[in-house]
Simulated scan of single mutants.
Amino acid sequence: MSGREGRFDELARLGVATVYEASGRQGLIDEDFVQLIPGTAVAGPARIAVCGPADNRAVHEAAARTRPGDVVVLTMDNPVPVAVVGDLLATQFKAQGAAGLLINASVRDADTLRELGLPIWARWIRVRGAAKAHRGTIDLPAVVGGTLIRPGDAVLMDGDGAAVVPAQRIDEVVAAGRAREAKEAKAREQYLAGGLSYDLHGFRAADEKGSP
């Protein structure tokens, strides 16, 4: 692993579940998101837009500010099922080099978005359109799914959902994730050889002694 991009690639490879556990069970973005393209996994620095109520004007500004590798986080103070991204905005984000979109609101044109190939996680799929009356805020911290996300924090997403790693903890969490991965690989070998977690964790011995 080398360089800025390598750290994000490694987070994506390790995956949300491993990173969440390795970080001390911190950073879970605890909402149900629809993964529009199954099998995708991305990680990158957060580019954040907080939209006005049922509004997507801020999304247009976010597209103009997006840089290659960004994970664009789009949310509202009180999210509602209004489509803040469709085919045309998603095309702009892809052309700007976004790694993916995390949308705490709705998307529409879902079939076209899948064909476009940009990894997108959305709270809802709804056709109801957004207004464009409020500028909202760009590149300021936001809370999504009960978790604070700051510009530049690592946001990662895969089939298990989404998580965030504070920018200053990325190297630490990557190292802890690799260690956890190695430990799990060893356990997997033991299980394939017939071992049982009931024994390896000491649960059988404790139960036979009558321990809680």
Rank of each mutant, 00 (worst) to 15 (best):
L74T: 06
A58E: 04
N78H: 15
A206Q: 15
V107H: 06
V80R: 08
V80Q: 08
G152A: 02
D160G: 00
D55V: 11
S23P: 00
D153N: 07
G194R: 10
V155T: 08
R150Y: 00
Q92T: 08
P166H: 00
V144I: 11
P68V: 09
A185S: 13
V155G: 01
S106I: 10
L118W: 05
A130Y: 02
V85T: 12
R47S: 07
E21Y: 01
G159Q: 12
L88E: 06
I120P: 00
D32H: 14
A142F: 07
R180L: 15
H60S: 08
G39N: 11
A193V: 06
A62G: 03
G195K: 08
D55S: 12
I37C: 04
I103R: 05
S106L: 10
A62R: 01
D111C: 06
L14K: 05
L11I: 05
V71Q: 01
P151E: 03
G146L: 13
E21W: 00
R123G: 01
L156W: 07
G24I: 12
F33R: 07
R4C: 04
A193W: 04
D160P: 04
D70N: 12
A43H: 06
F8K: 00
R57W: 05
Y191E: 12
A58H: 03
L192E: 13
E5V: 15
V144N: 03
R150S: 14
G27Y: 08
Y191C: 04
A175W: 00
D139G: 07
G69S: 10
G24N: 12
A105Q: 07
R204E: 11
R188K: 13
G69I: 07
I48L: 06
Q190P: 00
A122E: 07
A142D: 07
E208I: 11
A95G: 03
D87A: 14
A54F: 03
A163G: 09
L11A: 02
K186H: 08
L148M: 12
V144F: 05
I138C: 02
G194C: 12
G97N: 09
A49W: 02
T112H: 09
F8S: 02
L101E: 02
A122H: 08
A58F: 05
D153R: 04
G145P: 05
E61Q: 10
A12Y: 02
D158A: 06
